[in-house]
Design a protein around this nucleic acid. Sequence first.
DNA 1: TTGACATATGCCGATATGGACATATATTTT
DNA 2: AAAATATATGTCCATATCGGCATATGTCAA
Lengths: 126, 126
Amino acid sequence: MPIWTYIFLMARAATTSDAFNAVAEPQRRRILVLLKGRERPVNELARALRITQPRTSKHLRVLREVGLVRVREAGQQRLYGLDARGLQPVHEWVIGFEQYWNENFDRLNEYVKRLQQKEHADGKRR
Amino acid sequence: MPIWTYIFLMARAATTSDAFNAVAEPQRRRILVLLKGRERPVNELARALRITQPRTSKHLRVLREVGLVRVREAGQQRLYGLDARGLQPVHEWVIGFEQYWNENFDRLNEYVKRLQQKEHADGKRR
DNA sequence: TTGACATATGCCGATATGGACATATATTTT
DNA sequence: AAAATATATGTCCATATCGGCATATGTCAA
């Protein structure tokens, strides 16, 4: 089977591994919150979240891969610390909508929008 | 098979369907950006994103289910409009990290953190 | 009514994901 | 060295997800 077939078949999903994705998982969000202020070892996080240690390690791995946490060896333990810089893009994207969630969708507003839409639709009609 | 067995087996993933998740998908983010300012019909979105219409409809369904867009029938078309209120929780969560991504990880900072960590570890030792 | 257009949905295939469990690896303690 | 502790990883299972394609549904025009 030629390589391009393989590539073609592979070209499906590719959701993985950016800050947006890392943060989509509730447990991972909780981990990040727990890491505010100070580093913590894996077991402590697992206990705090009431989840198993392997699961915790896997979430930490994802967070590590997208650069939201960093690890530091400390004897037997691995101390995970927050590196929030990766959250900045998320913030920047979301803040771009601030004016819209404050918007009051009153009738006039809607009316104007519909007019605009109508114009647009007519204009584009081919 | 007793019902609890079923429930037990079911209790696996549950990632689905909140704003965090909806926004984790790049195409869906692009859709939301396109909907800033004015409503758009599905086909227009599909064309703008260079993706198929069914795919667009499916993304829109997710966005609709989490309440980030609303639909309005307009003859043959369905006009999708932004409802950014659902993004507010995302913003609130992320903004809680603002002080940390500005943080400069200098040596003193680290030193203090490590001291705290050590104290904590010693204190918890059982 | 028929046909064109707009949209939603069902099905399939491939892959990603999350969790549980067992186990491998590394470090410290005895 | 052996045991205890801390963590990472591999395997298995069930499900979610994304994409393409075909098609169903609904609306408007001729």
